[in-house]
């Protein structure tokens, strides 16, 4: 299946969870916020949430700012 993460198309195995995708990207789940199809996903749901073909995912984190 194909998803779009932060604007980039990616191929993932069927039923990949959000947590698994973050692990693949080498991202600490505690440092990012995820939006799937404009819906904010609570951190305790990362393990359970299975991504679907065509999902649009935004991964956001804090950066320096004033």
């Amino acid at each position: 299946m194909q998803i779009i993460c932060n604007g980039q198309r990616r191929d993932l195995a069927e039923d990949t969870t959000l947590a698994a995708m973050l692990a693949m990207l080498d991202l600490d789940p505690n440092t990012v916020v995820a939006e799937v199809n404009r819906k904010i996903i609570e951190r305790d749901q990362y393990e359970d949430l299975r991504l679907r073909d065509g999902d649009r995912i935004e991964l956001i984190r804090f950066v320096g700012g004033g």
Binding site: C5, N6, G7, Q8, L25, D26, L27, D28, T31, V32, V33, E58, L59, I60, R61, F62, V63, G64, G65, G66
Partner: peptide
């Protein structure tokens, strides 16, 4: 103060939160 940005997947830099003690600093 901190800002929010998309993670740059090709170049995932450090997370700013890891440099600041959230017990001491109010974000």
């Amino acid at each position: 103060t901190v800002a929010l940005r998309r993670v740059d997947l090709d170049n995932p830099e450090d997370d700013i939160m890891s440099h600041l003690d959230r017990e001491r600093f109010h974000f």
